[in-house]
Design a protein around this nucleic acid. Structure first.
Lengths: 350, 350
DNA sequence: GCGCTTATTTGGAACGATCTAAATCATTTA
DNA sequence: TAAATGATTTAGATCGTTCCAAATAAGCGC
C-alpha cells in the first residue's frame, strides 16, 4: 500500500500573500479583522486562506507581540474528583477568554512541583494557577517561576514567607468557618464528644479546619480529648485503616468532623467493618461535597465547595490580574455551605 | 505602600552574551549542552545565566527549529474520574519525555470539540490525544486539525469515514469482550433473564458493549426481551431515573449488565429506592472500575480498565508516532479484567 | 488636471531562539 | 617559520508573525 502523500510544508502568510497577489502585511491585517483593509481584498484573501487550508501560528504571533495565550494549571492531585472538577471549570473560563490551559500534575511531590513549574514556565504562560503540593514552600516556587509571571494560589498556602509572596493572589476556601459549621451542627444534634478525623498537620487547609473545629468546641464549652485527633493521609484508604484509633481510649467520641469527603467515606467504611453503623451509632461529616457524597450509604453531611465554580473563579481572578498587573493582591475566601444529609444524625442515647 | 519594582524586560540570549563578552551563538550552544564549547567559557556563561535569572524561551526555539514540545489532550468529560485518571497518566508520561500537555475539555459537545480543537491546533501541538464527544465525526475533526498533526483516538470511534481517518492510531478498550465476560459471569451465577442497562446507542463504546452482551446471551441460548435494553445518559443521575423501565413488562430481569460504573451505581440506588436490594434481589455489573466501585454498598462487580495506565500508554503511542511519522497506523485494544465483588450474587430463587 | 485629504497597501525591521558556513585561535608538523 | 590541523567561536540569515513608517491609490473640490 504505497502512499503518495507528500510532506506538505506548513502554509504561512507568505503563501497566502503570494497566492492572491497581495502583501504579507495585508493578509495579517485580514486575519486580525482590521477595518483598514478593503472589503474586496478581504474577501479575496479569505478565499485563499480557506483554499490553502491556512492555520494560524499563535506561537510566532506571541513571540512578536510579546504576549501569551496560555495559562499554566498546576495541581497537586488531578485524579481527585475535586480537582478534576476544578480543572474543568478553569479550562472552561480560560477557553472562553481565548486562552489555552497548560496542564501540570505534581502528585503531592514537592520535587515534581519544582520540575513541572520550571518546565511550564519555559513555555511562557501568561500566569499560573497553583494548588501547591503538601509541604511546598514559597522559595521553591519563586525560584522556579521567577518574579515576572503572576501566580494565583488555590486551596493551600505555601510554607515560608518572602516579600514577593505577598504579591500573589489567592483563592482559598473558608476552611475554618466550614469546619466550625460542621461541628456546631453536630453539637446541635446533641453530640458532646466529637473527634476531628483525618488529614495531615502540615497542610494549611487541614490546620484551618482543625482550628474551626476547636473554635466551635471551645465556644460550646466542650472538652477535647487528645485521642480525638487522628491524623491520616487525605485518602479513603488510609482513613479506613486508622478508624480504630478513635476507640483506643475513654471517653470514646460519638461523632467525627472529617478533614474531607474521601476521609469521611473511608471512616464510614471502617466503622461498618467494626459493626458500628455510621449515621446511627456514630455521626460523620465531610468536606468538599464530591459527587459521591450524595450517594453514599448513608448520604454524607458535608460542606459544599462547588469546585467547578471555584475553577471558573480562579481563572477569572488570574485574567483580571493579567489585565491589571499593578493592582493590589487580592485574597478571596470562597464561602462553603453545609449540606445536611443522613450521616449526621443525633446520638443514640439522647 | 509604594513599590519600586521596575518592570524588568525578559532576559534573552543577547543579554547573557553581552553580560559575559561572548556571542549569542555560544550561549545557545551552552544551553543545549554542546560539547563544542570550551570548559572555561561554559562555566562563565552558566554563571551569567544564573546571575541574570535567565529563562529559556521554548516557543522561540520551536519556531526556529520547526519542532513542537507540546501535545494536546482533548477529553469529552474531564470531570469524570475515569478521564481524570487517564489525564494524569498522559501528563506523567509526556512530562517525562519533555512535553507539556495542552488541555481541552469538550463536555460531550461536538461544537465545543470543534472549537477546542481549532484553538489548540493554533498552538502547534506535536500531536493530539482525542477522546471524542458523543456524535463527533471524522470530517469535523479532520477539518479542525488538518492532515499534518497526528491524532490518537482514545476510547471511542468517530462517526463517518474518510481516507485520512484510516491513518490515525487508536487505543481502545476491549468493550465487547468485557461485556461478554460480565454477562458470562452472571450466567454462571445462575441468572437467565439479564438486561443491558444504560448508555446511548450513538456511542461506539456502548454499541460494542451491547454486542458483547448479545454474544454471550446468544451463545448460551438465552433469549433477550426488548424491554431489557434501557438507554440512558451515561450518568448516575439519569440511571437512577430510568430504573423503573426494567420492570415495566414481563418477564422481569434478575440481573443487569451496565454500560459503566456510573450507570451501575445509579441503578443500584434506584433499586434501593424501589425496595429491591442490589446484590441480593438483583445482580449488577459495571464497567471501568472507578475508585468508588470497591467502596459502594454492595461493592460493585465491574471491568477494570486501569485508566491511568491507559493514559501512559496513549502518550507512549503518540510519542512513538512522532518519532516515526510514516509508520503504519496501529490499533491497540487494551484488555479489561473482570473484578468480581458482591453486587453480582446468584439469583434468590436458585 | 492639480493639490489635498482619506483610504488602503506595503517593505523591512523586529521578537528570541537556532542553523550554517566561515572566521578565529591554539597546536602541531614539516 | 609557514602551513596544516583541530578546537572554539561567531556573524548573519532564518522561523512566521506583527509593527512602524512610509508609499501608493482613490476621491474630491476647484
Amino acid at each position: 500500500m504505497e502512499s503518495t502523500t507528500s510532506i506538505r510544508r506548513k502554509i504561512t502568510l507568505n503563501d497566502i500573500a503570494a497566492g492572491c497577489g497581495v502583501s504579507r502585511a495585508t493578509v495579517s491585517l485580514v486575519l486580525r479583522g482590521s477595518p483598514l483593509v478593503n472589503k474586496h481584498t478581504r474577501a479575496r484573501v479569505e478565499d485563499e486562506l480557506r483554499r490553502q487550508g491556512y492555520v494560524y501560528n499563535r506561537a510566532a504571533a506571541n513571540l512578536r507581540r510579546r504576549t501569551s495565550s496560555s495559562i499554566a494549571l498546576v495541581l497537586n492531585e488531578l485524579a481527585n474528583p475535586f480537582f478534576a472538577e476544578f480543572a474543568s471549570g478553569v479550562d472552561e473560563t480560560l477557553g472562553e477568554a481565548g486562552f489555552v490551559t497548560l496542564l501540570g500534575n505534581t502528585g503531592e511531590s514537592v520535587e515534581r512541583e519544582q520540575a513541572v513549574l520550571s518546565s511550564l514556565i519555559e513555555h511562557g504562560p501568561g500566569g499560573i494557577i497553583l494548588s501547591p503540593a503538601e509541604g511546598s514552600d514559597a522559595r521553591h516556587v519563586l525560584d522556579a517561576v521567577g518574579a515576572q509571571t503572576p501566580v494565583l494560589l488555590f486551596n493551600r498556602e505555601l510554607g515560608g514567607s518572602l516579600p514577593e509572596y505577598a504579591h500573589w493572589d489567592r483563592l482559598m476556601l473558608d476552611n475554618q468557618h466550614g469546619a466550625r459549621l460542621a461541628t456546631l451542627h453536630l453539637i446541635a444534634q446533641g453530640h458532646r464528644r466529637i473527634a476531628f478525623y483525618g488529614g495531615h498537620g502540615d497542610s494549611s487547609s487541614c490546620r484551618q479546619r482543625y482550628a474551626g473545629y476547636v473554635d466551635a468546641m471551645t465556644a460550646a464549652g466542650l472538652p477535647i480529648a487528645a485521642h480525638w485527633r487522628v491524623e491520616t493521609a487525605p485518602t479513603r484508604m488510609d482513613a479506613v485503616r486508622a478508624c480504630g484509633e478513635l476507640f483506643t481510649a475513654q471517653p470514646t467520641p460519638t461523632a467525627a468532623v472529617c478533614y474531607n469527603d474521601a476521609v469521611a467515606l473511608g471512616l464510614m467504611l471502617g466503622l461498618n467493618q467494626r459493626g458500628v453503623q455510621p449515621g446511627k451509632d456514630f455521626a460523620v461529616t465531610g468536606f468538599d461535597d464530591v459527587a459521591e457524597a450524595a450517594f453514599s450509604t448513608p448520604p454524607l453531611t458535608t460542606l459544599a465547595t462547588d469546585p467547578r465554580a471555584r475553577g471558573r473563579q480562579a481563572a477569572q481572578l488570574l485574567l483580571a490580574r493579567l489585565s491589571k498587573p499593578q493592582a493590589d493582591a487580592t485574597t478571596i475566601v470562597a464561602p462553603v455551605t453545609l449540606v445536611v444529609r443522613e450521616s449526621s444524625a443525633a446520638p443514640r442515647n439522647s
